[in-house]
């Protein structure tokens, strides 16, 4: 599936903003960057719906809004059901001639808490029913809005306020839920992962997700300086490293067929360029406790799960 959407950096800069300036996201916010990039892929009239979370909170406070186009937030765990209702209404109202006779795209935004955890039921249901919408998961790997609590998207070993680095337990004991693979297993037409550093790849995938008939799922890694404990200037660098060490490889699954995207494919072709996880972990305060003799074996575990999942992905992509 190739998108005919060709663009240059200049096109992107000139394209009108949908998430306007003046919102209250933190300096260096990965999710704000991720959403802004996703919205550069919008092709026409679009309705947005948003799960409760950081980006919902920072983009509105009555009577202000940062959204240039129609937007609705209702609750935390139901954004895919909200998208279902919007899409169904668009179909029937257009059919009955009660709205303009034109296609309108529907995009749902949710964080990792709203997707991996509390919202997985309605996401699964909406995808099973085949509604035509794109679900964008901006994954900052914890409940950042409520003060950095662990989610199903938090990686192994990360310290959060509900998986603290204690003297006995070194951060989150569990591994990150492979949410995008779960979505591929639904048999949906388009699933992709993306990172803000690879902006062109991200926008192209967002565009494909919008263009596809039926549900699309875009998983964007979205570093959070507050929750990951790094300097606000490092968001984009971290977005690159997480791909280069294969913790968050970039791929697409079109009708269930996995395919590595260019940055990750390059690593697959030259395995010696695959970076170890240490540099990435060392940059972030949430992993600081792992760099002690007592817990350094957790770094090995992170390397082990990264390699295991990378190998599994390569197999799915037909690369051995």
């Amino acid at each position: 599936m190739a998108s005919e959407y060709e663009f240059t950096a200049k096109d992107i800069v000139e394209k009108p903003e949908i998430l306007m300036s003046g919102h209250r996201a933190c300096a260096g916010c990965g999710p704000a960057t991720a959403l802004r990039l996703v919205l550069k892929a919008v092709r026409g009239p679009t309705i947005l719906t948003h799960a409760t979370g950081c980006m919902e909170v920072v983009s509105t406070i009555y009577p202000y809004t940062a959204w240039k186009i129609p937007w609705i937030h209702t609750a935390f765990e139901n954004v895919a059901a909200n998208a279902s209702g919007i899409e169904a209404a668009l179909k029937v109202l257009r059919r009955k001639g009660r709205i303009k006779d034109e296609h309108v795209d529907v995009i749902a935004f949710a964080g990792d808490g709203g997707t991996f955890d509390i919202g997985i039921q309605d996401l699964s249901g909406a995808v099973e029913r085949g509604h035509d919408f794109m679900y964008v998961l901006y994954d900052n790997e914890a409940y950042m809005n409520t003060g950095i609590q662990r989610s199903g998207g938090t990686p192994h070993g990360a310290a959060t306020t509900t998986s603290p680095a204690g003297s006995v337990i070194p951060g989150k004991p569990e591994y990150k839920k492979p949410i995008s693979d779960i979505m591929v297993a639904h048999g949906m037409p388009y699933v992709a992962t993306a990172s803000p550093y690879y902006w062109k790849d991200l926008i192209t995938k967002a565009r494909k997700g919008i263009e596809v008939d039926g549900p699309a799922f875009l998983h964007v890694i979205a570093p959070c300086p507050r929750g990951w404990r790094y300097d606000t200037s490092k968001t984009i660098e971290i977005s690159r490293l997480v791909v280069e060490n294969c913790i968050f490889p970039l791929w697409e699954a079109i009708d269930g067929e996995y395919q590595l995207s260019e940055p990750s494919e390059a690593i697959a072709l030259k395995p010696e360029t695959k970076k170890p996880v240490q540099e990435y972990l060392r940059m972030q305060g949430r992993f600081r406790h792992l760099f002690t003799p007592k817990f350094e074996k957790v770094i090995d575990e992170i390397q082990w799960i990264t390699d295991k999942r990378w190998q599994r992905l390569l197999k799915k992509c037909g690369i051995n």
Partner: peptide, 18 residues
């Protein structure tokens, strides 16, 4: 839908659409 929670969630946004 797959639950009453989603039933009303979908109704709500469909209604918001007019």
């Amino acid at each position: 839908v797959e639950s009453e929670h989603s039933a009303l969630s979908a109704c709500l946004t469909a209604s918001a659409m007019g």
